[in-house]
C-alpha cells in the first residue's frame, strides 16, 4: 500500500524546497531553495534525514494534511502554531521543533506561523519528490520542480518514500530572533546614491510591505536618491541584493529572484542575516547596518555553528 498525505487545504504558499538548484543561472534558472536555511535543515534533522532531503515549505498559513497509509515520523520547524486531529476526534496542540508520530487518518492542521513567515514540514525518509537537475526545489513562475512546479493545491497527494521504522523523536531548541537589524555590505553601485541617501539608508527605518514573496521584499521608507543613473547595464543578480528602482524604494531580491536585472544595487544582505530577514512579516520596521567582508565572513562562521 502506498502511503500519502492528502491535501485538504493547501495553505497560502506551500512548495517543496531543498538547498537549491545550482549551476544553471547562466541559462536563466535561479537557484531557488528554502528561504530559511536553518529551519529547513532543522526539520530534516528532527526526523533523521540528510539535510538535502526536500521538505515542504509553507508561509503564514500552512496546509491541512490527512495521512492515508502507514504511520510516519514527521516534524514541523519554525515558530508555528499547529494541531493534530486524531481519527478518534481528539485534538492535540502541536509542538514545533520536535518530531512526532502520526497515524492513518490523523490530520495535521498547520494554522499559522507566529511573528514569522516560513516554516517547514519534513518526514522520516523524505517525500517522494521528482528531482530536477539535481534538486527538488520548486520555482513556481517557471513551473520547475516537483508537483509539476506548482504550489500545493487542494486534493493533491503527497507520497513519501519510506514507512516509519523506529521510534526516534527529537527536539531542537528554537531561537526566535526578534532583532530587526540586518547587516549589509556595500553594493556594486553604492556610489550611485547621494551622500544623504547613503546615510539615510543606514540610519532610517524601512518598513517591510506586503508586496513580499519568495522573489523579493519591497520596502517603504526614506526614498533613496540616485545621482548617477536610474538604470545600469543588466547584470547577474545575487540573492540578498538590495536594488533601488527609479522610485527610490528598496527591493531586496530573495531566493526566487530574476537571474539578471538592470537596477542599481546599494547593498547586499550578508549570508548570516538572510534567514532572519526573510522571516520579517509585513509592517515590521527593519534597520540596515553597514559591515565589511571581514565582519560578514566571521558572522558566517558563527551562523554555521548553529547547524
Amino acid at each position: 500500500m502506498s502511503s500519502f498525505f492528502k491535501v485538504l487545504r493547501p495553505g497560502i504558499n506551500s512548495t517543496f524546497q531543498d538547498l537549491g538548484r545550482f549551476g544553471l543561472q547562466h541559462l536563466g534558472i535561479v537557484a531557488s531553495g528554502c528561504m530559511d536555511r536553518l529551519l529547513y535543515c532543522n526539520s530534516n534533522k528532527l526526523v533523521g534525514n540528510n539535510i538535502s532531503e526536500g521538505a515542504l515549505e509553507f508561509a503564514y498559513q500552512g496546509p491541512l494534511l490527512e495521512l492515508s497509509g502507514e504511520k510516519a515520523l514527521v516534524a514541523i520547524s519554525g515558530n508555528v502554531n499547529f494541531k493534530i486531529q486524531k481519527k478518534s476526534g481528539q485534538t492535540i496542540v502541536g509542538k514545533p521543533n520536535e518530531s512526532f508520530i502520526v497515524f492513518n487518518g490523523d490530520k495535521i492542521d498547520i494554522l499559522s506561523t507566529v511573528k514569522s513567515v516560513y516554516g517547514y514540514f519534513s518526514i522520516f525518509g523524505g517525500f517522494d519528490l521528482k528531482i530536477i537537475k539535481g534538486s527538488s526545489s520548486t520555482l513556481v513562475k517557471a513551473k520547475i520542480g516537483p508537483n509539476d512546479g506548482n504550489k500545493l493545491k487542494i486534493e493533491d497527494k503527497i507520497f513519501y518514500k519510506k514507512s516509519y521504522s523506529k521510534e526516534n523523536t527529537k527536539k531542537i531548541k528554537f531561537f526566535f530572533d526578534s532583532d530587526n537589524t540586518i547587516r549589509v555590505m556595500k553594493g556594486l553601485q553604492f556610489d550611485y546614491f547621494s551622500k544623504k541617501s547613503q546615510e539615510n539608508f543606514f540610519s532610517k527605518e524601512y518598513k517591510v510591505t506586503n508586496l513580499t514573496d519568495r522573489m523579493g521584499m519591497r520596502l517603504e521608507g526614506e526614498k533613496l536618491e540616485n545621482i548617477v543613473s536610474k538604470n545600469i547595464k543588466s547584470e547577474g543578480i545575487t540573492k540578498g541584493s538590495i536594488q533601488i528602482p527609479g522610485d527610490g524604494k528598496p527591493i531586496i531580491l530573495l531566493s526566487d529572484h530574476p537571474t539578471i536585472g538592470g537596477y542599481p544595487k546599494i547593498g547586499n544582505v550578508i549570508t548570516a542575516d538572510y534567514d532572519k530577514l526573510v522571516q520579517k512579516t509585513p509592517n515590521t520596521k527593519i534597520k540596515f547596518k553597514l559591515v565589511d567582508l571581514t565582519i560578514a565572513e566571521s558572522a558566517f562562521r558563527e551562523y554555521v555553528r548553529k547547524f
Binding site: F22, Q25, H26, K233, S234, G236, T259, V304
Partner: peptide, 22 residues
C-alpha cells in the same frame, strides 16, 4: 562555485562560503 552568470559586460560568480572564500 555555485553559479556563474555572464551579462553584457560582467560575470557574476556565486559560491558556497563554507567551501571557499572570495
Amino acid at each position: 562555485i555555485l553559479n556563474y552568470t555572464p551579462s553584457y559586460n560582467k560575470l557574476i560568480i556565486n559560491f558556497d562560503l563554507e567551501e571557499v572564500r572570495s
